[in-house]
């Protein structure tokens, strides 16, 4: 078996269903009355349906598609935030999700404290985070603001801190949702460089983006999601081409 074919993520006939109540029932009383009347109705919405996908070790896989196509749901599934309603997901290795900035951040805590809190969220001990601390702040270039509350940060500063923390924990799998579009020009260059570094070290990346230039530049393969199903998966240039073509029509 060649190195390229070693799979680290495998989705096997995966479905994720959200149950959307036809009308919002938010109180127990209402729920009880409707339950007695047999009027608790849900509209099922399959955010992902019958998805088969595998990601090889060391590759960067792009995910493209319209809003609501299921891209973010897929990342959240791999990050274990959601559970599959059907099928099976197998993930090997440490996952660093970079789904939204400020996921585990608290505005009243300082940058320093938030770094440690995020480390704990990813299951790192304090000693491990102490070793990583300097590198994280260096990368985020936030030494001047490290001891002030996060609420005083600009969104770009928050983004830098989030990216620095998530990528400094040496994940085997990095999940990135639209985050390369935040931050200024120089930070974008820096984060692209770090992702390249990652790839060289053999880490696997899944990247959701609406920016086709980034997808073409970063991704070895790309999957096109449409209404919760995979419409095409393969070489980035071909999939992107087909996707853009469909938008013109």
């Amino acid at each position: 078996m060649s190195k390229q074919n070693l799979k680290v993520i495998k989705l096997d006939k995966v479905g994720v269903r959200y149950r959307i109540p036809s009308e919002r029932i938010s109180s127990f009383k209402e729920y009880s009355i409707r339950w007695i009347q047999r009027k608790v109705t849900h509209r099922d919405f399959w955010a992902l349906q019958d998805v088969n996908l595998s990601v090889n070790r060391g590759e960067t896989l792009g995910l493209i598609g319209h809003n609501g196509a299921g891209k973010s749901t897929m990342l959240k599934l791999i990050a274990r935030v959601f559970r599959p309603t059907a099928g099976r997901v197998v993930v090997a290795g440490k996952v660093a999700p970079l789904l939204e900035f400020g996921a585990g951040f608290h505005p009243e805590l300082t940058g320093r404290e938030n770094i440690y809190l995020n480390g704990a969220l990813m299951g790192f001990s304090r000693q491990e985070m102490e070793e990583k601390f300097k590198g994280i702040v260096d990368f985020a270039e936030l030494w001047d603001f490290i001891d002030v509350p996060l609420r005083t940060y600009s969104s770009g500063m928050g983004a830098r801190l989030g990216f620095a923390v998530a990528t400094d924990v040496e994940p085997d799998i990095l999940l990135i949702d639209e985050v390369l579009s935040v931050g200024d020009e120089s930070f974008q260059r820096k984060s692209s460089a770090r992702m390249q570094e990652f790839r060289d070290q053999g880490a696997t990346t899944m990247l959701v983006s609406h920016n086709m230039d980034i997808v073409i530049k970063m991704c070895d393969r790309t999957a096109w999601l449409d209404h919760g199903q995979i419409k095409a998966v393969g070489k980035t240039s071909e999939v992107v081409q087909a996707y853009l073509q469909s938008q013109i029509e």
Partner: peptide, 13 residues
């Protein structure tokens, strides 16, 4: 699925 010794494998069902 390929794993090394140290890696944790997570199966979600």
């Amino acid at each position: 699925i390929s794993t090394t010794q140290q890696e944790e494998v997570i199966r979600l069902q």
